[in-house]
């Protein structure tokens, strides 16, 4: 089975767009709803080309283009996208008009761009890519579904390169609804954010490779019964969790970690990137960057939770970042595990 590497990752989020600067100087927020910081899109599209694109499409195209450029791939063998909400802004506009105009005289552009798979297909059109193109819309595990699809195809040798994306926008109206329903904007909860992440997966290790993807697993049910066949728990240096500051959600994470991965230090990422359906892509991104840089920034550590970081000196810390498991769960029913290792780590025989 081929070894699979992440050769580039690009993001647009609440952090400075298209850079990894957040790793050393993260932007902190006290608001409960933060929209992504957009780059100057005019640098990337002619006005006539971009005029129909909503924000989510512009962001998806830019991060995809930059991820492709950085990995020196022009035409990927697959474009696979995870999105919880799809083009929700256009959907809202379309539905508003549907109600206002009495189901008549609806604008075709908003209709065409209100579907989930618009994102992946537009990336393909712009990249002139006619190969495999799929969208996963599975709420909070959409990204991991896309990642697993790519990994399985790469491992089986069916494809050599895959552009995997995670894209979600958060409109003021949708945030208000989720806040009223108690899903977002609660006391102590990390801010509601937006996601635009594109990563290039290949079966070729290069100097630019951030890390190796060892495994992606999804599990439904009682997580205590889950055991990954290929995962040596004792080898894991850190667990990257989707904790979001809500006591009940975080309790599930901590309890499951104690059962499955006792005494392994815990990391977080939603304090920096916020909460959204495809936020777990930021967990993978953050873990990949930690592996590449060989260190864990302080703000990613969950110092007070259960297990303190086990290696305290800088030298020990740098040598300790070899394997990170990203764990995400939805209502304690859907569980996903993405295992990343340092690109130079040799698997045990």
């Amino acid at each position: 089975m081929s070894e699979i590497y992440i050769n580039s990752i690009k993001q647009i989020s609440a952090q400075k767009p298209l850079t990894d600067e957040w790793f050393d100087a993260p932007v902190r927020y006290s608001e409960n709803y933060v929209r992504a910081i957009d780059p100057d899109f005019r640098q990337y599209f002619a006005p006539n080309v971009a005029r129909r694109f909503g924000k989510i499409l512009k962001r998806a195209l830019v991060v995809s283009q930059k991820a492709l450029e950085e990995s020196d791939v022009t035409n990927p063998d697959a474009i696979i996208t995870g999105t919880g909400l799809g083009c929700i802004e256009n959907t809202e506009l379309f539905l508003d008009k549907l109600v206002r105009e009495g189901e008549e005289l609806l604008n075709p552009t908003q209709f065409m761009q209100s579907t989930h798979n618009t994102i992946s297909s537009l990336i393909a059109i712009e990249a002139k890519c006619h190969s495999y193109n799929t969208t996963y819309a599975h709420k909070g595990i959409s990204f991991e579904c896309a990642l697993q699809d790519a990994l399985l195809q790469l491992q089986s040798g069916g494809i050599k390169t895959a552009l995997v994306g995670a894209h979600d926008e958060m409109t003021p109206a949708y945030f208000t609804l989720l806040q009223k329903a108690g899903f977002l904007g609660q006391a102590n909860q990390t801010f509601a954010g937006e996601t635009a992440v594109a990563m290039m997966l290949t079966n070729q290790k290069t100097e630019k490779s951030l890390c190796k993807i060892e495994n992606v697993e999804k599990f439904y049910g009682n997580v205590e019964t889950w055991r990954a066949a290929s995962l040596q728990v004792s080898d894991i240096d850190y667990i990257m969790l989707g904790t979001n500051g809500v006591a009940e959600t975080d309790r599930i994470y901590y309890e499951n970690c104690q059962k499955l991965f006792p005494d392994i230090p815990l990391l977080q990422y939603k304090n920096i990137f916020g909460e959204s359906y495809t936020a777990p892509a930021f967990g993978v991104y953050a873990a990949a960057l930690c592996l590449k840089n060989g260190k864990i920034p302080d703000f990613l550590e969950q110092r007070a939770k259960l297990v303190p970081p086990k290696r305290e000196s800088e030298e020990q810390r740098q040598n300790a970042v070899r394997k990170i498991l990203c764990y995400n769960q939805l209502e304690n029913k859907n569980h996903t595990f993405v295992c990343l290792t340092s690109k130079n780590l040799t698997p045990k025989k």
Partner: peptide, 17 residues
Amino acid sequence: LGLDSIDALELIVLMEK
């Protein structure tokens, strides 16, 4: 202006509305 077929649909909607 360099409009295309989707713009034509938008113009039809505009004329009626």
